[in-house]
Computed example of a mutant assay.
Amino acid sequence: MSVYDELGPEMQAFARYLKTADDLMASEAIEDVRSATRRLRDEAGRAIPFVETVEEGAFEGMRYRTYRPAFAEGVTVVYLHGGAWSHLDLDVYDPIMRQIAADGPVKVIGFEYPLVPEVRFPANMEACVGFVRQVILDEPNTPIVLMGDSAGANLAISTAIVLRDRHKIHVAGLALIYGGFDLENERESAARYGGGELPMTTEGVRSSQAFYLGEDGDPANPLISPIKADLRGLPPTFLSVASHDNLYDENIEMARQLGYAGVSVELKIYPRAIHGFLEAWSVTGSRNAKTALEDLARFAVARGR
């Protein structure tokens, strides 16, 4: 049986949807890639959850978007989107952030950090540090949960480390969703799930990481590969892991390293799920994805109590 055949029908449909994105992104021009990914979502007829208040804002010239349910719990989620540090945006992630806000119900702020190649590390991470710090200053009595998926999970934990070390600021929780945490090493799951049957191949991951690093980036830098960082003193952390992801082993090891550092860790593996599967709820109605979104909202609300 192929790894594709191991997926359920809804996740297979979602895999085909993302494969369409892979085909659209064949161009090496980053603007073509960005346009293709936006066009795919525009044409998908995605389900858009209702949230009472949605407001646009800007922080030092960068967009953010705030989702406020009518009766939100006393905690704020800051969400950092994925997209290989180089593409995707608030509009692509709108259904995901709306659903987390609605499921809480909890206030969610999505931040559109600067992308490569327009900037290089550490500019994108520093933008996240500055934004999260500003949210904490603006809401001094509100617990802040930092949440991110894929490249956004990498930025989320690195941001939490910098806030801890440089500013002596601690977020209330970290939610890390199928993140890329080690740009220096590949693990066995990269071969198992990254060969081309599923979206996001290992070859594609290598290209994205090289793009992020540029000519001068060091993959051993603990703020680039946070699996190598001093993780002590980080807040309670929830790891959402897709079973059929070439980053699967990396995420399991990240959970282990957090536990070794004394961090309270909750790890949940979602069966027959692929990288990026949170989006499958709005695209194919995947109950697996809906459960994951509910789990993220539950974790955030718990950090405010």
Rank of each mutant, 00 (worst) to 15 (best):
F50C: 13
E52P: 01
F131D: 11
Y64Q: 05
V108Q: 07
F59N: 12
P143G: 06
F299R: 06
V145L: 13
I48G: 04
F277D: 07
S2E: 14
R46L: 05
A220I: 00
I161E: 04
M147I: 08
E126I: 08
L80R: 15
D218S: 09
E197S: 04
W281N: 04
L213N: 08
L278C: 04
L231N: 02
S150L: 06
V171T: 09
G83Y: 04
T37Y: 06
G204I: 05
M254V: 07
E203C: 01
G304H: 02
T237M: 01
S282I: 01
A175P: 04
G262A: 14
F277M: 09
V283F: 12
D230K: 06
N221L: 07
T76A: 03
S264A: 14
E31M: 04
G233M: 06
S208L: 15
A292E: 06
N141H: 13
S158H: 07
P143K: 04
H87M: 02
R187H: 13
D91Q: 13
M25K: 01
E118S: 10
T291G: 14
M62G: 06
F71S: 15
D94A: 11
Y212V: 09
H167M: 06
A101L: 05
V119G: 08
Q99H: 05
M11P: 06
L231P: 02
R98S: 01
E197D: 15
N124F: 11
A261R: 12
S189I: 09
I109W: 05
M254D: 09
Q12G: 00
G214Q: 05
H244K: 10
L183D: 06
M97A: 02
D230W: 06
P69G: 01
M97V: 11
S264D: 15
F299G: 14
N154C: 11
E6C: 11
V171E: 10
A280Q: 12
R232S: 12
E215Q: 08
F111K: 14
S35H: 10
P199E: 08
R34Q: 03
E118R: 11
F50E: 15
A292G: 12
G304M: 03
D230Q: 11
C128S: 15
M254H: 04
M125G: 04
R98N: 03
P9C: 10
R39Q: 15
G276P: 02
A15T: 03
